[in-house]
Design a binder for these strands. Structure first.
Lengths: 345, 345
DNA sequence: CGCCTGATTGCACACGTGTGCAATAAGCCA
DNA sequence: TGGCTTATTGCACACGTGTGCAATCAGGCG
């Protein structure tokens, strides 16, 4: 036995309340928004009626007249990606705190779907859009250039002149991570990247390279290899590194999932982490602290980055137009997957 | 130099197009919805103008008059939970495929926030609501009983008469998992639960108990312990089990994260998995296949469950009112964390 | 030529809320 | 008592789209 007062049952509106309270709907509207323009007594009476009748104001109608939907759209490559989920969590948190609701849409990294989703957001009349970790990049420009709502890109391909952005400081963070390995005494340090060719990838490699340079180490191209950001491919790439005549004593990985795959390959080859090889990741996923050994990695403040992206939109809504190209510093978290090398090289 | 034609720039509406095309707005409306009531030639002309002017229909205005927003609300405890993220991914997938947009909101497992969020969804005039993994349970009844939109509960506390539901078949799946251990030859099998007291918890314990019964094994209360669904607490619980005079030879864990903590504790105690102790999880998170050793666990088809929940709503919208209390079977995935016990007990 | 049919279009209203402006009432002061 | 100020309320329109109904027009047929 289910309560199924099918959708046709018309909800109580502001006019219904007006009829009961014997006032005009204008007065009800004002009373419910606590306008000082309405008599205190009648206002209370109206609010009581509204409460008793289970009235729910229609945000739809309100949006139509105020031209503000108090709604934002978030387009992500894949919500199942833990980094993305963390970011969205932060976005939703501050959005809810400011009376905004968030539309979520996956793009599955398919450009045409991404475009379709953005179009749908425009029709929904969202007040702003946040795009996370998209690979669309340049294809976006025509779409963005005649965008009618502010857009914030988060860790995106090519933050352009048309949009605001929040990005992790990839270069500096990677530099720190690599320097950590150098300071431990490592000299043959490999880089296990992501052949996807994101901007993040390029930047993280740059940080790696700069750290080597600063320490007077030569960049060895044979120690640079590519996975695809997932454990399986990283395993293969790691196997390749281990097969070198002079294998590395440490690996800096594009992300934690790659590090996970690398560690498994190292184990499978009968070697130990960090005894034989040190491993550093990037992201600091929730599980990284529980990996075996606990992973040394660069923490991306995912939630915080989501908050900042949303805050950027809120600032724009409030006309507080300031520089909105934020670089968020990463934080090196040293755990047990790194140690000094066994042998001097 | 940013394009910031602030929000006041009024968008082109159906009326603007009508003016250009020298017809009434009604005709434009019909042309854009491919109504056969409009002349083919003028229809094409109108559509061309719409395309050239970058017209975007207002879903807000349309929702107001059609009383259908083509929108659903999804309330989750925490989007950063990988199970939840998988479910949401499935929901969004089928929603997008049917022209629906999804509002996402976290409840953080705070009942009052959950209620606030549902209220907000009502104001947004969503066509339906999906609630995932809520612990609110009984407190929900008053909220649900005068709900005006259909609601689907997914792996929820107490699927009530007021709502439809999609649930994993906890009892059967847990029974399968435990039987797997029994068939391997284990006799002292522990249960590492979640003291949170979800319905899932109770059911998974029931499956464990039934498997023991069916095999003629006595339920040993000392082998039943509680964590909180996260690795840290599971570590503690596992330490407790290992300290028993007769420690178990196998552990069935409430979820994969608990299993992760259990494995770490077993390692820290100088024992091996599965050599000394076998471990089974529940969920089959993405990382579980990459754990060391790869985890034997019960796969919850997260995406598929999300799809089913959304499909249930779609059925209800289409008036196809059939029994909507779906039990989804779990699938036991046997990997390397389980093996026959060393010693006969 | 007049009537009927079908195609095409516009009028007018509706959806639920917000708000500028005028209208009314009440209170105050000279 | 008359005029002014202030508090309170309602009228009327707007937001952008959908749709029932009437109106108009063209064409065909008797």
């Amino acid at each position: 036995m289910r309560t199924n007062l099918s959708h046709s049952a018309k909800l109580t509106s502001i006019k219904d309340i007006a009829r009961v309270a014997r006032v005009s709907h204008s007065t009800v509207s004002r009373a419910l928004s606590n306008s000082p323009l309405v008599n205190q007594k009648t206002a209370e009476k109206i609010r009581r009626i509204a409460r008793d009748s289970g009235y729910r104001a229609s945000a739809v109608a309100r949006s139509l007249v105020t031209r503000r939907s108090h709604t934002i759209g978030v387009v992500v490559t894949n919500i199942a990606d833990p980094f993305v989920a963390g970011v969205v969590s932060g976005i939703e948190e501050t959005a809810e705190g400011h009376g905004f609701s968030v539309f979520l849409a996956n793009s599955n990294a398919e450009p045409e779907r991404e475009v379709r989703v953005v179009r749908s957001f425009e029709e929904r009349r969202v007040d702003g859009i946040i795009v996370t970790a998209s690979r669309v990049g340049a294809r976006y420009v025509p779409l963005l250039s005649n965008m009618r709502v502010p857009i914030v890109l988060l860790n995106n391909q090519h933050p352009s002149q048309f949009a605001h952005s929040v990005m992790i400081a990839n270069i500096q963070a990677s530099l720190d991570a690599t320097r950590h390995l150098i300071e431990l005494g490592h000299r043959r340090i490999a880089y296990l990247g992501d052949r996807g060719g994101h901007q993040s990838e390029t930047e993280r490699f740059t940080g790696y390279r700069q750290a080597l340079e600063a320490a007077g180490l030569r960049l060895n191209r044979r120690l640079v290899t590519q996975g695809d950001g997932k454990p399986e491919a990283a395993k293969g790439a790691m196997a390749h590194l281990l097969a070198l005549p002079q294998p590395p004593t440490a690996v800096f990985c594009y992300n934690d999932l790659s590090a996970l795959g690398a560690i498994r390959q190292i184990r499978d080859s009968g070697l130990h982490v960090p005894g034989d090889i040190s491993v550093v990741g990037f992201d600091d996923l929730y599980i990284s602290q529980y990996m075996d050994p606990p992973l040394t990695t660069v923490r991306q403040p995912m939630r915080q980055m989501g908050c900042m992206a949303m805050q950027t939109l809120l600032d724009i809504f409030a006309e507080a137009e300031s520089g909105h190209d934020i670089k968020v510093p990463g934080e090196l978290i040293v755990r047990a997957s790194t140690a000094p090398p066994k042998e001097k090289s």
